[in-house]
Write a protein that binds this DNA or RNA. Structure first.
Lengths: 113, 113
DNA sequence: TTTTCATGAAACTATATAGTTATATAAAAG
DNA sequence: CTTTTATATAACTATATAGTTTCATGAAAA
């Protein structure tokens, strides 16, 4: 039985939110704790309007939470789980790099013989 | 110390490959084992050229492997790890749905009182 | 009130890419 | 040789969206 494509679509959408470098940068800047928009802009070096749009997308996806406090608005990671995801992928990618350099070494050995 | 954006970019690219419904459908059709392109087309209902392009992207990302056999070309999951990723996200999404329906029930209770 | 600051949103441009149609390639069947 | 089958590729269209510029809003400061 093929999985219901409707459920798969939600998974795809979730991955899509995490598939932009700028959004990952915003998330990483929030890893150390709640920050307001200005702080996020400073830490990431992204444009103000751009950060605002990304934060909206992240909030709609339920990945960050939004809480106005005084003049400014603070954002916070609502699903720390995303860092597990990113780590899993990162580990897999570095594992792959290691394997590749290992194979290169073996090729070198063959060439010298 | 902010993570090197270069590493983050690779993570984002990996998520991007998984962020398309059609590609997830192709991957799911390969979950039960190696299949040739025609079989993938039949199981997913996607167009031939479209499937071919998606398979190329998946192969370049190292997620599937390509092995010509006789007349046809067989593709196979090279990183079963992706199904773990999809399951993690799927579980998280259904958990969220559960929480939401739970909250709805509590609201109903309040309304009746 | 006027100015400044923090955030959000609209409008626009530029780019990427999903899907389709048509064609290419190559091998087997007739 | 010609046709069919299996896959890949090129060219094209349509759409989505990242980033920017500009403006809006609202609250505090001057």
């Amino acid at each position: 039985m093929p999985l219901p494509p409707a459920a798969l679509a939600h998974v795809a959408d979730y991955f899509k939110v995490l598939s932009e470098l700028s959004r990952l940068q915003v998330l990483c800047s929030l890893k150390s704790g709640s920050k307001n928009v200005t702080e996020i802009i400073e830490e990431t070096g992204l444009g103000q309007a751009n950060v605002s749009k990304h934060l909206k997308i992240l909030a709609q996806a339920g990945i960050v939470s939004r809480t106005p406090r005084g003049v400014s608005v603070y954002y916070e990671i609502a699903e720390p789980f995303i860092f597990d995801l990113c780590e899993l992928v990162g580990d897999r990618l570095s594992l792959r790099l290691e394997e590749q350099s290992q194979q290169l070494k073996q090729l070198e050995g063959l060439r010298r013989a």
